[in-house]
Design a binder for these strands. Structure first.
Lengths: 257, 257
DNA sequence: TAAAATTGTTCCCGTCTTGGGAACCTTTAA
DNA sequence: TTAAAGGTTCCCAAGACGGGAACAATTTTA
């Protein structure tokens, strides 16, 4: 019974949490001053002040007219993170390629904290607008990316994630129980690809295939489009063929990381 | 005599600095464990451990097989930062547009900490490869973006930045004294655009114009290409015209932020 | 232009967080 | 199976940190 979430014990560093709270607020508000932050986070002005100084020293924030805001340093960090994904360049080029080919939204996601995080997203002129954006986390049970990844994770990890899920019906089609999900994963293993038929957002269908390196799943790649344009025929034909081909290319180019 | 750098006094929070150091190491190394980090940063394992727990709690880092790495949460933060730049969408679309038009590298930069930080970069198929990447900081005296911005910053800020500059001859053409720089800024003000003629990197020429909102400079937009392709004629003709047009469009679309 | 109000900065103090050492547990290597 | 290395926990003493209040700077109002 490995139900217990691991990350429990151990000490946390309060001042670091304060600093991260400041960063969070700046992320949301975009701009804030000492007094505002002090009110907002329920700390004294002097405390906030020292923290801001520390963050400014490290060039993470910038003093603007009306307060402090996050600096572009963050963008630099993000670039580093991307480049640390050994095969980011290949992933990006394949994702972009698929957009040219299909005109729909194409995304690459990996598993983090039991959810799917988007590593790269590309869209064409006619692509539908969605809320998803790079770095964002989405449930695994309601997305094709998530289900594709879940299918090929080590069995115990898959179980652990499923056990900790809090199912929420995002649409009438959303899978909302471990049993259904297990059945779906079996189906995916047979097909080799995962479908999201309006399970996460009404009117949108997606298809995804895992990208693997031997036994380990690196992530998954998906195509998303409006149900009107993504017919059953196109989904299981052209699109299925396209994602799988892209996934293969990425896999082939990953033998060196 | 406003030579003194401001950000001096005030307390710094040690534990936050430790946490940021950890993040820095993970950024560089890509992956690291408790023991490694402890050695690397000269702290006890227990200290590092608590910090990692804190960062993991906040989903900033992820425990991988061989240690911890930064999570995609950083990408999400970067997206937020971008979107906080009121007119990011317009900037991006204009930059991308210029790439289609010219085939060269196009960048948008803003001033931070007396340097230019790249907010967006786009390149075409045939564009030259450069080291610059989004979020990176470059000197203002050796880049067209920097000089363009410097020309239109409030006079005291411009002076402050110039005073604090440590000139380094990146090539034989680099401006290396405040006097030369002032002359150059005057020239730029007359022309309306700034040129970098192999001053930052050998073989590369750039042209940049500021993007302003009334009296304040929001940033600058630039085109970069190999000297072979970027002739005097093209530089002062087609390219000058193109950047200025793009800058104008961005300015027009900024009247609402 | 002066006064008032708001925000930002500095200083000091007492507490409790935090860093470190060592022991313990877990995983990997031999 | 043992050894070695990494990861986790526990406890302690020191000094870092959060808070309050006074001070300085900036903005607003009249």
């Amino acid at each position: 019974m490995a139900n217990t979430h691991k990350t429990d014990g151990g000490r946390r560093i309060q001042s670091v949490e304060i600093a991260l709270n400041i960063i969070d607020v700046l992320q949301e508000e975009g701009q804030s001053g000492v007094t505002d932050l002090a009110r907002n986070l329920d700390h004294s002005k002097s405390t906030i002040h020292s923290h801001l100084r520390t963050l400014e020293d490290r060039k993470l924030i910038v003093k603007k007219d009306a307060g402090y805001r996050l600096s572009l340093q963050i963008l630099s960090m993000a670039e580093n993170v991307k480049n640390q994904v050994g095969n980011y360049d290949v992933i990006k080029s394949q994702v972009d390629e698929l957009v040219d080919e299909t005109g729909e939204i194409v995304q690459f996601g990996i598993e983090e904290y039991g959810k799917v995080s988007y590593l790269h997203k590309a869209m064409g002129e006619q692509s539908v607008e969605t809320v998803s954006q790079v770095g964002m986390r989405q449930p695994m049970y309601s997305t094709s990316l998530g289900k594709a990844i879940l299918t090929y994770l080590p069995e115990d990890r898959t179980e652990e994630i499923i056990q900790s899920m809090e199912f929420e019906a995002k649409t009438s089609e959303t899978i909302t129980s471990p049993t259904e999900l297990h059945e779906e994963l079996n189906r995916i293993e047979e097909n080799g690809y995962a479908i999201d038929d309006e399970e996460n957002i009404n009117g949108l269908r997606c298809i995804a295939t895992p990208v693997r390196d031997g036994e380990t799943v690196l992530g998954a790649i998906s195509i998303t489009g409006p149900s009107s344009r993504v017919t059953d025929e196109r989904l299981h034909g052209e699109l299925a063929e396209a994602v799988q081909r892209a996934a293969n290319i990425i896999e082939l180019n990953t033998k060196f990381s």
